[in-house]
């Protein structure tokens, strides 16, 4: 796995300019935005998408066939992509959190516990998003995978909007839906979200391993 991770980081090196811009944007947003709490929200998602781009690199010029002649198992390859996504996602999350916290402390606009709590709830969603994206990308490849992911996220968005509208139509506004949640212990909510995120990752890993084991190169 170490060899594959090195390969992917070396491949990403060619996109170094994009990383520099992304870092600069993160710092600028954290310093100048009135509500920088969304920074730890967007950066990990953008970074985890980079893990997907390495799959496209592997497929380019049929390179993945050669990769599996190396001491690499199909399962090992799939798991490495999860590792990479989580390293990039969690790493950028920590970075964004640090920048936002420091900026908040300097400006005196936020306390660490509040920023951390807002950022913490992002992680389960990051896990779920990685859990959805990776098997699709491994199964359908770079190009097709991207289209299918767009359809999936589009469908989820549509379902969400439709549910919201339907809720409003029958008189249950969002407040009514979220009211029962206010009674729930916040810690339990976080724990539940993390368990759901971790479970989705585990299921997704199993699917990805099965996808890779069926593939022929």
């Amino acid at each position: 796995m170490k060899g594959l991770l090195i390969k992917d980081f070396r491949l990403m090196k060619s996109q170094i300019n994009f990383f520099i811009i992304l870092t600069a944007v993160t710092v600028v947003l954290a310093v100048f935005s009135d509500n920088p709490s969304f920074v730890p929200g967007y950066l990990p998602f953008v970074m985890s998408v980079f893990a997907l781009s390495t799959i496209s690199y592997d497929e380019f010029n049929n390179s993945s066939a050669f990769l599996f002649t190396l001491p690499v198992s199909r399962t090992g390859y799939a798991l490495e992509k999860y590792c990479l996504s989580l390293i990039l996602g969690a790493g950028s999350w920590l970075f964004a959190l640090a920048v936002t916290t420091v900026s908040g402390m300097i400006k005196g606009t936020a306390v660490f516990s509040e920023t951390a709590a807002a950022a913490l709830i992002i992680l389960p969603f990051l896990f779920i998003s990685v859990a959805v994206m990776l098997p699709v990308q491994l199964k359908f490849g770079g190009e097709k995978g991207r289209i299918i992911l767009m359809i999936i996220f589009g469908a989820v968005f549509l379902i969400f909007v439709t549910a919201l509208k339907t809720g409003e139509a029958i008189g249950n506004d969002i407040q009514a839906i979220s009211n029962p949640l206010s009674g729930v212990n916040l810690k339990a909510l976080f724990a539940g979200a993390f368990i759901a995120g971790a479970a989705s990752l585990l299921i997704s890993m199993k699917i990805s391993c099965s996808v890779m084991n069926k593939k022929e190169f």
Binding site: K7, R10, L11, S14, Y57, D58, F60, N61, N62, S63, S64, A65, F66, T69, L70, P71, V72, F217
Partner: peptide, 17 residues
């Protein structure tokens, strides 16, 4: 697989490396 060295005609390390 460590004991095997392989070369394929239509595939190799990513050309971006």
């Amino acid at each position: 697989k460590e004991k095997i060295g392989a070369a394929l005609s239509d595939s190799g390390f990513s050309e971006y490396l």
